[in-house]
Design a protein around this nucleic acid. Structure first.
Lengths: 210, 210
DNA sequence: ATTTTGGGCGTACACTTGTACGCTAGTTGT
DNA sequence: ACAACTAGCGTACAAGTGTACGCCCAAAAT
């Protein structure tokens, strides 16, 4: 049970996953990858692929999980930075933009499969994003003492704005332009925060008066 | 020059376009369509396709233009309704949701190709959405007397939120749930409007004080 | 020491894909 | 009336696809 064999298997599994990730790009979506291409890039015979995944779909879902992991890593990093003080919104956007830059292909995968043709993929992506949203919702509710429903709407809107900005950022190569986009995103998040805070206060007030 | 010939050509061109639109669905993206499939659905021999489009790409760009038309149609309709009075945001969201329901596939095309693998497609979609955003920006600036930059940020954020909600709505079949989504979207747009108005006022005040 | 297991390979097959080429027949221009 | 043009068709081909099947051989289990 030393696992020499299992160890080797895990290794080639990673090779397949990495091969797939490497082939993703702005011009190449996951659904356009063929089993044979991925196998070749991984240094495998096409048929050996099946020893690890029964389908390209199964590989795809694994990649989405991988992407979810990256997302959670992002949240941890942002929280650490926030703990050191500074504007929460600014730090969050900046951290997010950095993550996108260094994991462009993973992020592209998420964005594409969110509106892709496989219901399973869409569900998986939406689950990851929902988790992300819920985390933010929790934070907002506690940090700003918001009404629960209002906090959710704010979190949802904020995530939408940030992901959309991330998507745009992927197509911008000029650093100054990206910075401007980040700046605009920060301002938009502040719009939302302001509106949410106000509604929450109004709701609290109407409860009190009863 | 009676144009019997040109007329016939235009007709089969439409057949091709409609064939492509018909094949689009939640499970079928444009990039997954093959030239042969489209030709067959249009009742044409594969090679006859080339008499109308040199490429599937060319057909795709035509479809995006078609979608842009639908978008402009939406704006006209919303403006008409707004002129009759009522909450601008509510009417806009409602109109948008109706459009999505009756043109689901066209809308899906836009959403998918926005983050698709063809740079030309992405550019075309972004152009349509930008046009849409600019129209809204103009309206906001005039109707609410906003600072120009603030109006743009609001329009941009609003379009992002609405399109994202539209994308979500495509996956919801339950009417009550869709209504709830619409309600949430309206509230989120109000958050943004509130934040934008405040920033604009603050900017005006700081100008005055100079 | 012997058997079982399982990852990896090569071959093979049935399909689908885009598109080059040449033909036909009916419209259009002269 | 005649010539030129052209939408549409059928054939054909090379390339790429997923995957069924059987073999090999080193690790694991007995």
């Amino acid at each position: 049970m030393s696992g020499v064999r299992a160890q080797q298997k895990e290794k080639t599994r990673r090779q397949i996953i990495n091969a797939a990730l490497n082939q993703l790009s702005a011009e190449r979506s996951f659904s356009s990858l063929s089993l044979r291409e991925v196998a070749k890039e991984a240094g495998l015979a096409p048929t050996s692929f099946y020893r690890h995944f029964s389908d390209m779909d199964e590989l795809g879902l694994t990649l989405v999980d991988e992407a979810g992991l990256t997302l959670r890593q992002l949240m941890r990093q942002a929280r650490q930075r926030i703990a050191k003080g500074g504007s929460v919104i600014q730090i969050s956007v900046q951290t997010f933009m950095e993550l996108i830059e260094s994991n462009a292909n993973v992020f592209r995968l998420l964005l594409r499969e969110r509106s892709g043709t496989s219901a399973a993929f869409r569900a998986a992506v939406i689950r990851e994003i929902r988790y992300f949203t819920m985390e933010l919702c929790d934070y907002l509710q506690k940090a700003n003492q918001l009404d629960a429903e209002v906090a959710y709407m704010q979190a949802n809107a904020a995530v939408t704005i940030v992901f959309s900005a991330g998507s745009d950022a992927l197509d911008i190569e000029d650093k100054a332009e990206r910075d401007q986009l980040a700046q605009q995103t920060i301002q938009q998040l502040r719009f939302i925060a302001r509106g949410a805070l106000e509604l929450s206060d109004r709701r609290k007030a109407s409860k009190k008066s009863k």
